[in-house]
Design a protein around this nucleic acid. Sequence first.
DNA 1: ATAGTATATTCGAAAGATCGAATATTGTCA
DNA 2: TGACAATATTCGATCTTTCGAATATACTAT
Lengths: 118, 118
Amino acid sequence: MGDELRRFKSEIFQGLAHPTRIAIVELLRDGELSAGQLIEKLGLEQANASQHLAVLRARQIVVKRKAGNQVYYSIRDHALIEVLDILRRYFYSQLSTTVSLLREAAREAPRSRTGAHR
Amino acid sequence: MGDELRRFKSEIFQGLAHPTRIAIVELLRDGELSAGQLIEKLGLEQANASQHLAVLRARQIVVKRKAGNQVYYSIRDHALIEVLDILRRYFYSQLSTTVSLLREAAREAPRSRTGAHR
DNA sequence: ATAGTATATTCGAAAGATCGAATATTGTCA
DNA sequence: TGACAATATTCGATCTTTCGAATATACTAT
């Protein structure tokens, strides 16, 4: 039971575990885009984009709609956008603690100009 | 700038992209546990557990505290717990739409006992 | 110092992810 | 129909992840 849920979560994470796929999901945040539009906006190889879209489809992160010649993609559930937003905030909070750690280190050892030790 | 952020997000996702590591993070939800306690609760090989903990440490998902002989692990930031909670809800909502799709399919084709088409 | 316990790292094999090039599929329009 | 445009899939090379077995490190207690 919880086992199934854990497998599910890890599959979602795997689905998002690539910068290109994150970029795709972020572009789709405000509505659907065709594969071609994604390729253009991200400057991807056609095959590569299609492969990443296949990963997102397999994990049901994204949903497609065919319109004639084109295929429009959109996010299947807004929950994943929420997840990305949490991680954005998380990123900046980690960043600021890292910065203050660096600042503190600089105060303790004001002579050193490089961060390197040893 | 956004590039760095995307790389960061994908690294977090990679860090969580394994059922064992999710299980570890979930166990740590209510406070720290030693490596040995994690091994025991999850029934892992010692080396395997240590490797997964190394991944979580490398991604700064988890933080360690040495106490004598033992090493206690805890979650670095509660944000990640939030993420797991969102995915739990997401899982159940997907599950219920899947169930209703199946139910609908059964109503449309009541003769068929298998899900196979073609 | 030695033995014992807890944890981490290294190694090699197997499985999986990623990429671009090439090819296949599907739809449109003349 | 045939030519074209958009998207998907397959192939093979390369890189990464994962695992258990073996080994290393760090700490405690005698």
